[in-house]
């Protein structure tokens, strides 16, 4: 880009802090945050896989961490970020077809992503703990 032109005084378009926070805007930000969180979460998955490949001692360390409250919380948040980003992504794929861009649909999609991701995550973890014989 030419420098002379970009240095000219131009009016700036209003940025985030100017607007009243709205659900759809928050969901757009949440999609980015959950995406970035998933990038970090995959490090957990990689650590877990490498430990299994390395042998019983390495796995014992990882297993102990993921069994702790901090480890379980991280895993829970990772699974929530995955599901949230997946539902948010499905919403984007629907929009790519040109459907669901009206005001009512975007509100419905936003709530479906929030409620759906929380409900699915909690349900899956209940099922997981039930399988472990916790109840």
């Amino acid at each position: 880009m030419s420098h002379g032109r970009s240095q000219a005084e131009r009016p700036l378009s209003p940025h985030l802090q100017i607007y009243r926070p709205m659900l759809t805007m928050m969901m757009s930000i949440a999609h980015r945050i959950s995406g970035a969180a998933n990038a970090v979460g995959f490090l957990l998955l990689t650590w877990w896989l490498v430990a299994i490949a390395s042998g019983p001692e390495a796995y014992a360390t990882v297993s102990q961490f993921f069994g702790s409250i901090a480890g379980r919380t991280l895993l829970f948040l990772f699974s929530w970020a995955l599901i949230h980003h997946m539902l948010g992504g499905i919403r984007h794929l629907i929009w790519d077809t040109g459907y669901g861009l009206d005001k009512t649909s975007i509100e419905v999609f936003a709530w479906a992503t929030i409620i759906g991701s929380i409900a699915l995550t909690v349900l899956l973890w209940f099922a997981g703990y039930w399988l472990m014989g916790a109840f």
């Binding site: 379980r72 699974s79 995955l82 599901i83 992504g89 399988l131 472990m132």
Partner: peptide, 28 residues
Amino acid sequence: TAIVNIPLTIFLVLAIVTHLGASYHEMR
């Protein structure tokens, strides 16, 4: 990749919650 990730993410999340506290040999 988003489309491909949908079924694979469901698989990963299911794999995580069904292997909480699994032993080394179960995991392997």
